[in-house]
Design a protein around this nucleic acid. Structure first.
Lengths: 203, 203
DNA sequence: ACCTGAACACCGTTCAAGT
DNA sequence: ACCTGAACACCGTTCAAGT
């Protein structure tokens, strides 16, 4: 129907989408502006209108990544029902799933965050952090048992989640072990006991 | 005394040292073979004798990084005395310190490990992993209280350490909070209780 | 407002040749 | 055994010019 217009029409979006795919499939070393332009069917200088330089593209990728990850974490919490621990595990699993499927992107996200301080990026990261923090504060407000300073428990759980993601993407741990790690971390931070091994529960 | 020889003499070592410094000071984007050659005072093609391509240099950096980090962790344990928890905290602190001082290198190390499988690299990583694992197994053998499956506790502690490092390098947590995070994680994994806040202990 | 084409400096990689 | 110098393909970036 729509013969695609001479002016690409949505070059910025197309470049970002293609960049995310390249990042996932080939790694950041194969991410070149000229190549993206080629695949979008425009001249090598066209991206300049939308991204001042290569770094600007990476910044935009990082920002979009934090926003999407935040959304996925929130969605996981929303569909986890009312049980607090179950919600925590769902949130953590969503984070680890993202880390597994988009390892290179997640890495880029934190590299950019370390190097750059733009309001847009800080906001996107803040939304992700808040997805976890809101849940944890909510839990402590609803009278969940606390083992100590709530702020410290919160930080510890965040560390465990991010650490689990790191262990998975580095290949030191598989998906099943990651799920158990998450369950253990959540249980230890909420009631101070690790769950029994799967086969040993009794009626 | 020694006029430096025409043949550089130790080009490989010089390149690696300079690369590590550039990585620390300028980031991986500014790491170029030609630039390293320039700073070593050799032609741009000279590094080829020692590193087949840029990736080979990165691989060597990663391997050396894992070895050094393993050594630093072991050294920290050795100088921590006989108390098990103190040893654990010292090991974790050494890891986090490395992550703080050589964030770009640590990142590169895990990127390389994910992409490449050479015996040398696997061995270097194995030596780091073993530094922690030996300590943890030693602790459980010496009759330290266990809260559950020792393998799971071990993994959880590794996740907490790596997660703490991630929080520090991403700027979400400062050095003091990192120390407390480590102390909390170690305490929770060994006796299931978080240590009291600093000012509130009673005689 | 958005894109093209030529140009420049830089890089990784290769290879014949030098010592 | 180790290094040089020229060469090639590629990239990021810039800018005058086109629609």
């Amino acid at each position: 129907m729509t013969g695609r217009p001479y002016h690409h029409g949505n070059l910025r979006t197309a470049l970002l989408a293609e960049a995310e795919r390249t990042l996932r499939d080939q790694g950041i070393d194969h991410l070149s502006l000229r190549d993206l332009a080629r695949q979008a069917g425009v001249s090598h200088a066209a991206p300049r209108r939308h991204f001042a330089d290569r770094q600007a593209l990476l910044d935009a990728l990082a920002e979009a990544g934090f926003l999407r990850l935040g959304d996925e974490v929130r969605a996981a919490i929303d569909t986890a029902g009312d049980d607090y621990e179950r919600q925590l595990r769902a949130a953590a699993s969503a984070y680890v799933r993202f880390a597994t499927q988009d390892a290179a992107l997640l890495e880029l996200m934190y590299v950019v965050k370390r190097g750059k301080h733009s309001p847009a990026l800080d906001d996107a990261f803040g939304r992700l952090f808040a997805a976890f923090d809101d849940l944890l504060r909510q839990g402590q407000h609803a009278g969940e048992r606390q083992l100590g300073d709530p702020g410290r428990v919160r930080l510890l759980l965040l560390a465990a989640i991010q650490g689990t993601a790191a262990l998975v993407t580095s290949g030191s741990v598989d998906a099943a072990q990651a799920d158990q790690l998450i369950a253990d971390a959540v249980a230890l931070c909420t009631h101070g006991l690790m769950p029994r091994a799967a086969g040993r529960s009794r009626p």
